[in-house]
Design a protein around this nucleic acid. Structure first.
Lengths: 198, 198
DNA sequence: ATTAAATTAGAACGACCGTTCAAATTCAAA
DNA sequence: TTTGAATTTGAACGGTCGTTCTAATTTAAT
């Protein structure tokens, strides 16, 4: 069934897919609603039929992207048994699934004084998601006796900034080629926090 | 002497100072030539008397900022005797003198397809400056026997991305409060590369 | 004092962009 | 088949922005 020539949901999804691609490639300000219209094949007016405005559209995409990243991690997480394995697994997860360019576009929006405070807040909240995931692994490692007792908040920030910094390389380099780098970062980090490491 | 009412050089410097401030606060696209005009007190036309266009103005400021950062480091570097000390000193130098917001604006410009390839290339070249500084310290540490022999290019990238990632925190937090974090990152990194550390 | 160059201002242009709106088209139900 | 709602279009508006241009003002030299 459902042989309608109009399929609003399909149109909405297609618009969102092209929007994600464009925001990632060109950034928030450099991507116009006209660009999204041209790429998706739907008129500008139709985009406003589905989404209140450009800003809300972007926030929705960013939230959806981050949620997707987190869900994928939760699925993968249980395949690892130790916190150490999880750290290495997380590094690969970040390398291959963290949508750095899209989320960097969020900084553009957030730093614009004309953006609605609500949107800015929502984008800020997204940064908490990966940090929480890192913290959970570190906490588990401590609880299980794999890692020494230490300043877990500091560890979380140090790990998060390192992985975040490494992600900036994904613009210029092949992901596969970056694997050893991400792996080595975890190895170095583990020397600090692993029990019996000294 | 020199009691001219017109002082073109002074005007140029003032325009550049306000432009740096605005580009840092609002980003490249969100800073209009009109903004710079209003902030500096000189007309838009006058800005184009001194600078060919907005893009060239920004590239000049970015280059100048990076050169200033490097010069300040070269002055400070010789006050440290060991490569280990230099690493800690570099961390503080990055924390307090690396103009993260301005240089992030460069990514906005570089990711815009309408930007001239020449400008994009010039901005890319700027990223080499800090990496070279890091590599020099690591090389010195190896040569002097402070650090073990290892993959110096990999170390350079790992150190650079970590400091770069940590710099993103300077938007939200007080610099002074970040000192322990930067310090701790170097400590962890040193455990990997320092001789007799195991 | 005259003149030509340097400096500055401000208006104006053309392009683009986010958004709105009215009309056209398609759909599902009556 | 008619009707009203859902969907889609495309033109249009108001605003902003980078840039250009002309004219005015100041400066230094003659």
């Amino acid at each position: 069934m459902n042989k309608r020539r109009y399929d609003s949901e399909k149109a909405k999804v297609e618009i969102m897919e092209h929007a994600v691609s464009l925001f990632s490639q060109k950034g928030y300000n450099q991507t116009s609603v006209g660009d999204i219209s041209t790429a998706s094949g739907y008129s500008k007016g139709h985009i406003y039929y589905h989404f209140e405005n450009k800003e809300k559209l972007f926030v929705l995409l960013a939230q959806q992207t981050m949620q997707d990243w987190n869900n994928k991690w939760l699925q993968k997480e249980c395949t690892y048994s130790t916190a150490t394995e999880k750290l290495y697994g997380m590094a690969m997860h970040v390398l291959y699934h963290y949508q750095t360019p899209l989320l960097r576009s969020g900084q553009e929006l957030a730093s614009n004084s004309k953006s609605s405070p609500e949107s800015v807040q929502q984008l800020h909240n997204l940064a908490i998601v990966p940090m929480s995931a890192y913290r959970a692994i570190l906490q588990e490692g401590i609880d299980k006796g794999e890692f020494v007792h230490g300043n877990i908040e500091e560890w979380t920030v140090l790990l998060g900034t390192w992985l975040g910094g490494l992600c900036q390389l994904t613009n210029n380099q092949e992901l596969k080629a970056l694997e050893p780098l991400f792996h080595q970062a975890i190895t170095i980090f583990l020397k600090e926090i692993k029990k019996g490491g000294i």
